[in-house]
């Protein structure tokens, strides 16, 4: 109970999110209609992605100051699950765009920014496997992940605010707080954010544990 209480919270929160997300009452808005339910799935994905990338970059910085294999594996796990969350955010966003803007993809800085962010983190994994020297690859990847994190912040947070954008919350468009006047959606949205972040942390914990076991076996085979 001491170590897995947050997993129970995660499951409960996500069950609540799914139930309220598909069945709960939502405010009726022009254009958006029922697609407003996607708020509980699309937006938390990006929150989870940024949270996981932040955790990953913290471990990368720690790795640069004192390199241990465990920190590298942890950084790697958070980045990987963050990338998956980002891809899911992109797909849910594409579905949403199809039914509100009329197209799967729009020429929009926010969309391009997020797509390029995902490219950066894919490059991170390419860089990691580009050298046969594992330690050197891990160090290079740690350096690259810090640069990628900063550039990702510029792309997602800064550029859409100064360039015109279709996306809610940018370029003079109202954010979602304006659509949700009676705050009923907030009661589902915030639990959803916490739930999806916890799920991401859970996934990366599983990844880190399996990698650690593999490492242990490898060391046993080598007789270390």
């Amino acid at each position: 109970m001491k170590s897995y209480w947050w997993k129970i919270i995660c499951v409960l929160l996500l069950l609540y999110t799914e139930m309220m997300g598909f069945l709960g009452p939502v405010p009726a808005r022009a254009m958006l209609n029922e697609t407003i339910r996607n708020l509980y799935f699309h937006v938390p994905m990006w929150f989870a992605m940024i949270a996981l990338f932040t955790a990953g970059v913290v471990y990368s910085i720690q790795y640069l100051s004192t390199p241990t294999e465990e920190k590298d594996i942890k950084a790697n796990g958070f980045m990987l699950v963050g990338l998956v969350m980002g891809l899911l955010g992109l797909f849910t966003g594409m579905v949403w765009a199809k039914f509100t803007w009329g197209n799967w993809w729009a020429k929009d800085p926010k969309l391009y920014g997020s797509a390029i962010t995902l490219l950066m983190y894919m490059a991170y994994f390419v860089l990691k496997t580009s050298t046969t020297d594992k330690k050197l690859g891990a160090k290079f990847a740690a350096v690259y992940s810090i640069i990628a994190y900063v550039m990702q912040l510029v792309l997602i947070m800064v550029i859409p605010r100064i360039v015109d954008s279709l996306h809610p919350g940018n370029g003079g468009n109202p954010a979602f707080s304006n659509y949700d006047l009676d705050s009923s959606m907030r009661m589902v949205f915030y639990p959803a954010v916490i739930g999806w972040i916890l799920l991401g942390v859970w996934f990366s914990q599983i990844y880190v544990r399996t990698k650690k076991i593999e490492l242990k076996w490898k060391k046993q085979d080598l007789g270390l």
Binding site: T117, A123, V126, S130, M151, L155
Partner: peptide
């Protein structure tokens, strides 16, 4: 890393986009 121009492009293109 010994990746040459391909690695250079993969790493630098997304970073230079902002």
């Amino acid at each position: 890393a010994g990746g040459g121009f391909a690695l250079m492009s993969i790493l630098s293109l997304p970073i230079l986009i902002p």
